[in-house]
Deep mutational scan, measured.
Amino acid sequence: MEVRTIKVFTTVDNINLHTQVVDMSMTYGQQFGPTYLDGADVTKIKPHNSHEGKTFYVLPNDDTLRVEAFEYYHTTDPSFLGRYMSALNHTKKWKYPQVNGLTSIKWADNNCYLATALLTLQQIELKFNPPALQDAYYRARAGEAANFCALILAYCNKTVGELGDVRETMSYLFQHANLDSCKRVLNVVCKTCGQQQTTLKGVEAVMYMGTLSYEQFKKGVQIPCTCGKQATKYLVQQESPFVMMSAPPAQYELKHGTFTCASEYTGNYQCGHYKHITSKETLYCIDGALLTKSSEYKGPITDVFYKENSYTTTIK
């Protein structure tokens, strides 16, 4: 009895394709271990004539594949690729409408935090270190965002349907971005203890939790000093293409032309909904596939993004 075979390709990165001759009487799992086709788990399936010449994702289970996976995804987590594939199996079914010149995501599976993050990423200057993220990001900007969303979920250790947080998501993504040249110098002034300067680099240099107003941050924000008295913390120097200011959701007025974009969060910790506000020729609110415009805006804002380049204080 002759062994019926077909020729397929296996890959971990969709760049390096490895030619395989597979036995049609055995499952993919018996031949390769966990195997995925377009995100779908085909591990328990036997090869079919229609699979001839198709590319299958496999887990990096030998040295060659491990090197290829690390170079593309910059992670050695053995569960990463499987999590990416199972997320992709959902995100490829989502709709990605162009809204006001940006790629958004039609609401499904509690994905409003991903839509808000995706919209924000198209408006701030950011370059990702893992080629996987950078490639998928370019495709997302062009309207094909399924891979990018699935990668975000995998890097953030999230599953489809789980509630997510924009600030946490951005923080994970910033860790995989090139923020080497970003720098922030802060000064804390206390009447009792004097003053202390701190220099922050990388992710810490672009994120701040405690106030939404970048102007206020430049002037000074009140913080408790270690001595128990009130101290003032203010920005001395900022070198970065953008800054992200966050605070627990509270009524906040966004003035046209003073910011790049913002995240609105309605609801409580267990259950809520994100919308995205962007400042173009007027203010726009993007909620999944829905767009509304207004000249002014007041609502429960939790993150505001500002364009920056270089700032030095005039406070002496």
Rank of each mutant, 00 (worst) to 15 (best):
E2D: 13
R4T: 14
R4V: 13
R4Y: 11
T5L: 09
I6F: 11
I6C: 13
I6L: 14
I6R: 11
V8W: 02
F9C: 09
F9N: 13
T10Q: 13
T11E: 11
D13F: 00
D13M: 07
N14S: 14
N14Y: 12
N14R: 14
N14Q: 12
I15L: 14
I15F: 13
I15S: 13
N16S: 09
N16L: 04
N16M: 15
T19Y: 12
T19A: 14
Q20I: 09
Q20L: 09
Q20Y: 09
V21K: 13
V21D: 13
V21C: 12
V21G: 10
V22Y: 04
V22C: 14
V22H: 06
M24G: 12
S25R: 11
Y28E: 10
Q30A: 11
Q31Y: 12
F32M: 08
G33L: 04
G33N: 08
T35V: 13
Y36K: 03
Y36F: 11
D38K: 09
A40S: 14
D41T: 07
V42I: 11
K44V: 13
I45K: 14
K46L: 14
K46F: 09
P47V: 08
N49R: 11
N49T: 09
S50D: 14
H51W: 04
T55Y: 07
F56N: 00
V58P: 06
V58K: 08
V58Y: 04
L59A: 14
L59F: 10
P60Y: 02
D62F: 03
D63R: 06
T64W: 10
T64P: 10
R66V: 14
E68K: 08
A69K: 13
A69Q: 10
A69S: 10
A69Y: 06
E71I: 10
Y73P: 04
Y73R: 03
H74L: 06
T76P: 14
T76S: 13
T76R: 12
D77M: 08
D77P: 03
D77R: 03
F80E: 00
F80N: 09
G82L: 14
G82N: 13
G82F: 12
R83D: 01
Y84F: 11
M85W: 12
S86I: 13
A87E: 10
A87R: 03
L88P: 06
L88A: 07
L88Q: 04
N89V: 12
H90F: 11
H90R: 10
T91I: 04
K93L: 12
K93M: 00
W94Q: 00
K95Y: 15
Y96R: 07
P97E: 06
P97V: 15
Q98F: 01
V99R: 09
N100E: 14
N100R: 10
N100M: 10
N100H: 11
G101H: 05
L102Y: 12
L102I: 08
T103M: 04
I105D: 01
W107Y: 04
A108I: 03
A108Q: 14
A108H: 08
D109I: 01
N110T: 02
N110P: 05
N110G: 09
N111I: 00
N111H: 00
C112Y: 04
C112T: 05
Y113E: 03
L114E: 04
A115K: 00
A115S: 10
T116G: 01
T116M: 06
T116D: 04
A117Q: 10
L118G: 05
L121A: 05
Q123E: 08
Q123A: 05
I124E: 01
E125L: 04
F128W: 12
P130D: 02
A132C: 04
A132K: 14
A132L: 07
Q134P: 01
D135G: 03
D135P: 04
A136C: 03
Y137K: 04
Y137C: 04
Y138R: 14
Y138V: 13
Y138Q: 15
R141T: 09
R141I: 09
A142Q: 14
G143V: 04
G143A: 05
A145S: 05
A145C: 06
A146R: 04
A146S: 11
N147I: 11
C149L: 08
C149H: 02
C149S: 07
C149M: 13
A150C: 07
A150W: 01
A150D: 06
I152Q: 00
I152P: 00
A154R: 08
C156R: 02
N157F: 06
N157Q: 10
K158I: 10
V160L: 06
V160Q: 07
G161K: 08
G161R: 00
E162V: 04
L163T: 13
L163G: 10
G164N: 02
G164W: 10
V166L: 07
V166R: 00
V166Y: 10
R167C: 02
R167Q: 10
E168Q: 15
E168C: 15
M170Y: 00
S171N: 12
S171P: 01
Y172L: 15
Y172P: 04
L173G: 06
L173M: 14
F174G: 02
Q175I: 07
A177E: 02
N178Q: 13
L179T: 08
L179S: 03
L179A: 00
D180H: 10
D180Y: 00
D180R: 07
S181Y: 12
K183V: 08
V185G: 05
N187P: 02
V188G: 13
V189Y: 09
V189L: 08
V189W: 07
V189I: 10
V189A: 11
V189G: 06
C190E: 09
C190W: 05
K191A: 13
T192K: 12
T192G: 09
C193R: 04
C193N: 03
G194Q: 01
Q196D: 06
Q197L: 10
Q197F: 07
Q197M: 12
T198A: 09
T199H: 09
T199P: 03
T199D: 08
K201R: 15
V203Q: 07
V203E: 00
E204Q: 14
A205G: 04
M207Q: 07
M207L: 06
Y208Q: 08
Y208W: 00
T211D: 05
L212M: 03
L212K: 02
S213A: 01
Q216Y: 03
K218L: 05
K218I: 03
V221W: 00
Q222E: 09
Q222N: 10
Q222D: 00
P224M: 12
C225E: 00
C225Q: 03
C225D: 00
T226M: 12
T226E: 11
C227W: 01
G228E: 00
K229I: 08
A231Y: 00
K233H: 08
K233V: 13
Y234D: 11
Y234V: 07
Y234N: 00
Y234S: 07
Q237M: 13
Q237Y: 15
Q238E: 06
S240A: 02
F242C: 06
F242W: 09
V243E: 01
M244D: 01
M245D: 03
A247G: 10
A247H: 04
P248V: 12
P248M: 09
P248Y: 15
A250I: 08
Q251V: 08
Q251P: 10
Y252P: 00
Y252C: 06
E253D: 08
E253T: 11
K255R: 12
K255V: 15
H256W: 09
T258L: 05
T258R: 08
T260M: 15
T260Q: 07
C261K: 04
A262R: 02
A262H: 01
S263A: 09
S263I: 11
E264F: 00
Y265C: 07
T266Q: 01
N268T: 15
N268I: 01
Y269L: 15
Q270N: 15
C271L: 13
C271R: 13
G272R: 00
Y274F: 10
Y274Q: 02
K275Q: 06
I277F: 07
T278E: 07
T278F: 11
E281N: 01
E281T: 06
T282L: 08
T282S: 12
L283R: 04
Y284R: 04
Y284H: 10
C285L: 11
C285W: 11
I286P: 00
G288C: 00
L290Y: 15
L291E: 05
L291A: 15
K293C: 13
S295D: 10
E296C: 14
Y297H: 07
K298M: 09
K298W: 12
K298S: 14
G299A: 08
P300H: 13
P300W: 15
I301Q: 01
I301V: 10
Y306V: 03
Y306I: 05
Y306E: 02
N309K: 11
S310P: 02
Y311V: 02
T313Q: 15
T314E: 15
I315H: 15
